[in-house]
Amino acid sequence: MLEQQLVNGLTLGVIYALIAVGYTMVYGVIELINFAHGEVYMIGAFLCVTFITALGLPFYVSMLLAMGCAAGIGVTIDRVAYKPLRASPRLAVLITAIGMSIFLQNLAMIIWGSRPVPFPQDAVPAYLKETAFTFSGVHLTWLQLFIFAVTFSMMLLLYVIINHTRMGTAMRALAQNRTCSQLMGVNVNRVIAFTFALGSSMGAVAGVLVAVYYNTLSPTMGYVAGVKAFAAAVLGGIGSVPGAMLGGIVLGIAEALGAGYVSSLYRDGVAYAVLIAVIIFRPSGLLGKALVEKA
């Protein structure tokens, strides 16, 4: 079933892309691999579930609320952990990012328990689970369509923000040259905060979509998804937003095919292998600029 696998891979791929833009945007403006991003994705999913079960809010509202909270969490992480270290060596910030990731993961485990929990099914609009189309044997559920639609509109939104707003211009300026932008009157900290907010809210959406798609969520889900999304970002060319989208889709499909045709045992291994191979053979990724050490 090549076609079905392609469709499933594509679904997964667009979700990776959604997470990957969070990595890539933050890397673009502060050159930091924000390891905690995978955890924001996971917390986004848990928050959505909590809003549904504890507050009884409808699915779509909970999802929007989770996005908002995740944005706040992303900004807070930056404020508390990364911002004080802007002048420190790269290594210090990278270590902090790892520490933050582990901290959040375990915090989630304490709050929500370490076992995987199902997504509250009765909250999910029923039609989402029905098959929308069957096209020469390939099934496409409404949920998959919903995922495509949400991802597509988020990406469109992102494109408009980056290319057609003052904030987006400032983000691109910052990615080019920090000191210069500062001199030209860009409020660096505000732009960085905005970047974290934007990336985190997109991560949260991805978290919710995955939780619904697989009908499960757990505190460790951010770990694997984070690595994969990061691999997608690297594959596309870290720092490049279109690259992250492309990388996510390519990785999702590669993974689905790898699991189908090579060995399902190494399903997660595909991402790692892609990651290592891209870094070794084409470190600039598909669409990015080279990142060779400036001696």
């Binding site: 690595v227 990061f230 691999a231 997660d268 790692y272 990651l275 990142l291 060779v292 050490e293």
Partner: peptide
């Protein structure tokens, strides 16, 4: 030869593999 960030990631991927 690449920047240190990539080194961190490759080592991570290696250990997972």
């Amino acid at each position: 030869r690449l920047s240190g960030d990539y080194f961190a990631i490759v080592t991570f991927g290696f250990a997972e593999l």
